[in-house]
Design a protein around this nucleic acid. Sequence first.
DNA 1: TTGATATCAAGAATTATTCTAAATAAAGAT
DNA 2: ATCTTTATTTAGAATAATTCTTGATATCAA
Lengths: 158, 158
Amino acid sequence: MVSKLRQDITAKSKSAGGALGGLRMTRQRKLVYDVLLDERDHPTATEVFIRSKARMSSISLATVYNCLETLSAAGLVKQVNVGRDASRYCPNLAEHAHFVCVKCEKVYDIGLKCNEEVESVWALPEGSRIDHLEVAMKGLCAECNGGDKRSGKMEEQV
Amino acid sequence: MVSKLRQDITAKSKSAGGALGGLRMTRQRKLVYDVLLDERDHPTATEVFIRSKARMSSISLATVYNCLETLSAAGLVKQVNVGRDASRYCPNLAEHAHFVCVKCEKVYDIGLKCNEEVESVWALPEGSRIDHLEVAMKGLCAECNGGDKRSGKMEEQV
DNA sequence: TTGATATCAAGAATTATTCTAAATAAAGAT
DNA sequence: ATCTTTATTTAGAATAATTCTTGATATCAA
Ligand SMILES: [Mn+2]
Ligand SMILES: [Mn+2]
Ligand SMILES: [Zn+2]
Ligand SMILES: [Zn+2]
């Protein structure tokens, strides 16, 4: 289903028919997806709405929520949650974590180190199945943390 | 400040004075903390409210939110967020992740493997400072995943 | 006891998100 | 091209978690 929708996106707005009741690559869905691809700064639904409205004045916030939900369900987009803040959206499908700078509020993609896998550090319970993993970090980005040489260290736990 | 409040909790409700304007270990704060220690099932604020109300009928939901916020800020309790769901609260101060079973909805603490550290798998940006890390997983717990032998595997990414 | 300050409690307010229902658009068939 | 069916969009109402406001209480320290 993922590939189905994606080929329709890269190709030319044809029906996705069959499988999941017939998903259509509509102008709105394409626009929302393009907005995410254009500026990869993890916008919130409202930010996506504002950017989309600039290109299609008739689009509604409800539709933006619908499209983001559809694209997420289709696997083309990831919904990103950091704490209690509004969800943000990200078209980067590679496995990655998110880091939010508490000062400048920028959201950074954090990739996995080569040959590492996230599960390796956690003592996962035997017999369970993990479908979804979300890793969120907060702190000061390099720019906002200027001067301080103690980089990449977690505050120790009590 | 953490230890300050904690000793007051374990000891006998004395003022925490000084430092942060004088935090007091009130009956309500103690109760909320006790509720969390009593049943370590990561209750939501509303669940904490219900349990607290059973022991102190006068307590209000607003106060429960206040107490949870104060205890979290003091470092005695962790606020746990999984997706968009209501925050849950956890008195386990050891570094750990959370796993929610999408079927039975139980929340499990997932500890770090011995000698491992979370940051080791991520390519953290040089010069930044991470103050906070939250890891949330979703899937089927061992009981709800009965029969299936393919355990602990993440669904592959596209 | 008294005055200063911290905390509590009830309800209003806020905010992100979801729901509802009617209007519109797209796809396939004729 | 027209018709039919179904998916989608839209505006606004509704929801739910959380925060805010304000006056009442409790606690501390003098
Ligand atoms: Mn991302
Ligand atoms: Mn926990
Ligand atoms: Zn920054
Ligand atoms: Zn389960």
